Simulated assay, not measured.
Amino acid sequence: MMTSEPLAWVIDDEPAIVDIVTFALETQGFRWRSFHAAGPAWTALRSEQPDLIVLDVMLPDMTGIELCRRIRDRWNIPVLLLTAKGESSDRIRGLEAGADDYVTKPFHPRELALRAQVLAQRHEAHSDESLTSGDLRLQVARHEVFVSSKRIMVTPSEFRVLHVLVEHAGETMPFARLVSAVWGDIDRIGNRELLKTTVYRLRRKLDAVHAGTGARIRSVRGVGYVFDVEPTE
């Protein structure tokens, strides 16, 4: 359970950026801890897990993308990636590695603070609810997904997309409603692409365990997505 003052880690080797990020986080009530390289942060994760990680792509000892991938393999911690302006390849690779959101440099501190707050709040468990649809089961409080009793490792954003779709199975969910449910009401160009990337990753993970499960997340062209109550033929 997240405390009243969530803990954020800032991993960036530029002191000026760390100062800006930590100041922004403080405005939203975060406690923080900073690291200037991936190695020390990775070691510290073995004894403590924060409520959020703000992670720069360019680090001296390991890319932020590789560190994000390692984090995602073991923990369900929200990751907000810092990328260079115009480097769309970094954003795509970061999302594929399991990052939940990104902010491009130079960024507005207020936007970063709000996105961090949304990720941390969404990560906090609100219910012990369990949702099922055929051989698919979602354990809501723990953000766990099972297909035929096999657990699927998903990111927080992937889980929230699936949760909304399964909760409204058979109903077409508009892009805007899904984006709002997953990342909040912060308007930004590229949110639909972020959603599409998340759905793509989710489909692949589901199909890797049980072919056809991912296909139940169906695109409705120009409108949104629907989770089919029964697998499609």
Rank of each mutant, 00 (worst) to 15 (best):
A169Y: 09
P106D: 02
S89N: 10
A141M: 14
E144N: 07
A113R: 06
L138K: 08
H126G: 14
L119I: 08
A176N: 06
L95C: 13
V166P: 03
D100M: 10
L80I: 04
K196A: 14
L119D: 00
V199Y: 10
I152T: 05
I92W: 06
L114R: 01
E129Y: 03
L82N: 06
L165N: 04
D73E: 14
S149L: 09
H108A: 11
V140N: 00
V103P: 00
L131S: 06
L138G: 12
N76E: 03
E193M: 09
R91Q: 13
V79Q: 01
D90I: 01
H123G: 08
H163S: 02
P106W: 02
L165Q: 06
Q117K: 15
V147Q: 02
F175K: 02
G184M: 04
L80K: 05
L95N: 02
Q121S: 11
R72L: 08
S89F: 04
V79T: 03
S148V: 09
T197H: 09
E193Q: 14
V166L: 13
L112C: 03
L194E: 01
Q139L: 15
L138T: 12
I186F: 06
K150G: 03
G98T: 13
K105P: 05
E158M: 15
K196S: 14
A125D: 08
I92R: 11
Q121F: 05
L114G: 01
L81C: 08
R91H: 02
E124Q: 07
P106L: 05
L162T: 07
A169S: 15
A113G: 09
T132Y: 10
R110I: 13
R201T: 15
R177K: 08
V166K: 06
T83L: 01
I189Y: 07
L80Y: 05
P109K: 02
A141Y: 14
E124F: 04
A113D: 07
G170E: 07
L202S: 02
A141D: 11
P106V: 04
I186G: 06
L80S: 07
L81P: 04
V166M: 14
R203G: 03
V199A: 10
S88C: 00
A125N: 09
E87H: 10
D90M: 04
W183Q: 01
T104L: 00
V147G: 04
A176T: 07
R72T: 10
N76Y: 12
R204P: 06
T198H: 09
E171W: 07
L165K: 08
I92A: 11
E111V: 01
P156H: 08
D100K: 05
V164G: 00
E167R: 15
A176I: 03
